[in-house]
C-alpha cells in the first residue's frame, strides 16, 4: 500500500523554489531515508507531508488524504524535529503523560524505559534541556507514539555519537517490533544506511533517485589506477565522479552496469574499490564545478 504519494509537487517561498516538480511514492511500513544536502528541500518536503505547508503546485496525498490542515492525517502522523515545543507548565514527566492521550498506539513502557535509560530528570522542563537532550527527548516521543507515519527531521542534531548509536538501535528495534512507515531525514548517511530500506535522494528540490539501499549499494563502482588505463576502461561507462589524486593516477566512480568485478580484476593495474553510500550521494548531488579542490586550484 502506498502511504505517501507526491505528484509534481512544487513549493516555492516567494522567488525561491524549495521543491520542484517532485513525484514520488512511499510504501507502507518502509523505513525510508530522506537524504540531501542542506537546502535540498528535505524539511520542506517533510512539512508538506505533515500537512504544515500547502504545495504551490502539484498534489500530495498521505493515507489517500490531502494532509494540509487535515485532522485525520495529523492524528496518524508524528513529526519530530527540533522545533517541537511543549508548555513550560509541564515537566518532562508531565509531557510523557499528556502526550499519551493524543496517540492511541502510545507505548508508555517504551517511553519510560527510554526516559530512564537516558537518565532524564522527570521534573525538568523541556525548554531548559540542552539541544542534544531535547533531540533525545523528542525522539523518545516519536518512537513511543508509534504513529502509522513517523517522521524524523534531522533527529540526531546535537546528540553525541553514543546517543546517536543508541537512537538508531532503538529506532530499528521498535520498528521491528511494531513495523510502520518511518521517514528519517539525515545528512549523516553512513550512520543510518544499514537500518534504512529505501533512500530518497533530493538535489535542489528535485528527486535525484529513489531506490532501495540494496540496489544503491551496487549502484556504483570505484576504480583506481593509472590515468591512461582507467580512462581506457571507462569508455562506454557512465562516469559519476573522477578525481586525480596523484601524478598520473585517477580515481573514477562509474555506474555499475552489470560488470562483474572479475572482468576488471583481470587487469593488473586496476584496483576496484567500494563506494560508500555517503560518497555516492555526495557525487550524485554535488555541483558540477569539480569539488572543493577546484577552488584552490585557481
Amino acid at each position: 500500500m502506498t502511504v505517501i504519494q507526491g505528484e509534481n509537487l512544487t513549493k516555492s517561498y516567494g522567488k525561491t523554489l524549495a521543491l520542484d516538480n517532485l513525484t514520488f511514492q512511499i510504501e507502507e511500513n518502509k523505513l525510508t531515508g530522506l537524504i540531501g544536502r542542506n537546502g535540498a528541500g528535505k524539511t520542506t518536503l517533510l512539512k508538506l507531508i505533515a500537512g504544515y505547508l500547502k504545495p504551490s503546485r502539484g498534489e500530495i496525498n498521505v493515507f489517500s488524504h490531502n494532509p494540509f490542515d487535515s485532522l485525520q492525517v495529523s492524528a496518524n502522523i508524528i513529526f519530530i524535529d527540533n522545533h517541537m515545543a511543549f508548555p513550560t507548565a509541564f515537566s518532562l514527566d508531565d509531557i510523557l503523560t499528556e502526550v499519551a492521550h493524543y496517540y492511541q498506539n502510545w507505548n508508555a513502557k517504551l517511553a519510560h524505559g527510554l526516559f530512564d535509560y537516558f537518565s532524564f530528570n522527570p521534573k525538568q522542563r523541556h525548554g531548559s534541556l540542552s539541544k542534544g537532550n531535547q533531540s533525545t527527548f523528542n525522539m523518545i516521543i516519536g518512537l513511543a507514539a508509534r504513529c502509522p507515519l513517523t517522521i524524523f527531521d534531522e533527529p540526531t542534531s546535537g546528540m553525541d555519537s553514543a546517543v546517536r548509536k543508541d537512537f538508531y538501535r532503538a529506532l530499528l528495534k521498535d520498528y521491528l517490533e511494531y513495523p510502520r512507515t518511518i521517514i528519517l531525514s539525515s545528512h549523516l548517511l553512513s550512520e543510518v544506511e544499514d537500518i534504512l530500506e529505501d533512500i530518497l535522494l533530493l538535489r535542489d528540490g528535485t528527486k535525484c533517485l529513489h531506490q532501495s539501499v540494496l540496489e544503491l549499494k551496487e549502484y556504483a563502482l570505484g576504480l583506481k589506477g593509472p590515468k591512461q588505463t582507467v580512462l581506457e576502461r571507462l569508455k562506454g561507462q557512465e562516469i559519476l565522479h573522477t578525481e586525480e589524486f596523484a601524478q598520473g593516477s585517477l580515481y573514477a566512480v562509474i555506474k555499475n552496469q552489470g560488470l562483474t568485478s572479475q572482468q576488471f580484476l583481470k587487469h593488473e593495474d586496476l584496483e576496484l574499490l567500494p563506494v560508500s553510500l555517503e560518497d555516492l550521494c555526495i557525487y550524485l548531488t554535488g555541483n558540477a564545478k569539480g569539488g572543493i579542490d577546484h577552488v584552490f586550484k585557481q
Binding site: 530499528l172 528495534k173 521491528l176 530500506e197 539501499v213 540494496l214
Partner: peptide, 17 residues
C-alpha cells in the same frame, strides 16, 4: 529476517535478501 535485523542492526529487507 527480523531476528537477523535486530542482531546485526540492519534493515529487515537486507536480512531477507
Amino acid at each position: 529476517q527480523y531476528q537477523l535485523a535486530e542482531m546485526f542492526n540492519i534493515n529487515p529487507a537486507t536480512a531477507a535478501k
